[in-house]
Measured scan of single mutants.
Amino acid sequence: TRVETATETAWISLVTALHLVLGLSAVLGLLLLRWQFPAHYRRLRHALW
């Protein structure tokens, strides 16, 4: 049971790290898009909202 718990903890930390990385890359990508294509971003936002 001790090994299982350790594996579970490792998986949880791995998944958390993955989610953090994905979230950060998504935010960075959005910022980059907004910085590179302001007109396109505004049009996209206008279409979405």
Rank of each mutant, 00 (worst) to 15 (best):
T1L: 13
T1R: 13
R2G: 10
R2C: 09
R2F: 09
R2M: 15
R2E: 12
V3S: 02
V3Q: 01
V3F: 08
E4G: 08
E4I: 11
T5R: 02
T5Q: 00
T5K: 00
A6D: 09
A6E: 09
T7S: 10
E8L: 04
E8D: 14
E8G: 05
E8S: 04
T9A: 14
A10S: 12
W11N: 04
W11Q: 07
W11I: 10
I12W: 07
I12T: 14
I12G: 04
S13D: 06
L14S: 02
L14V: 11
V15H: 00
V15E: 01
V15C: 11
T16M: 07
T16P: 03
T16G: 12
A17T: 13
A17C: 14
A17G: 12
A17E: 00
L18I: 07
L18Q: 04
L18A: 01
L18E: 02
H19T: 03
L20Y: 01
V21H: 00
V21D: 00
G23T: 08
S25A: 12
S25P: 00
A26H: 00
A26W: 04
V27T: 09
L28N: 03
L28P: 02
L28G: 00
G29P: 05
G29W: 06
G29Y: 02
L30D: 04
L30T: 08
L30I: 12
L30S: 08
L31H: 04
L31P: 04
L31M: 10
L31I: 13
L32H: 06
L33V: 08
L33F: 06
L33W: 07
R34E: 04
R34P: 02
W35F: 15
W35V: 15
W35K: 15
Q36E: 08
Q36C: 08
Q36I: 14
F37M: 09
F37Y: 15
F37N: 01
P38D: 14
P38C: 05
A39W: 08
A39R: 15
H40P: 15
H40E: 08
H40D: 05
Y41A: 15
Y41H: 07
Y41I: 09
R42A: 11
R42M: 08
R42I: 09
R43W: 09
R43V: 09
R43N: 09
L44H: 05
L44Q: 01
H46N: 11
H46R: 07
H46E: 11
A47G: 07
A47T: 09
A47L: 06
A47I: 07
L48S: 04
L48C: 12
W49F: 06
W49P: 04
W49T: 01
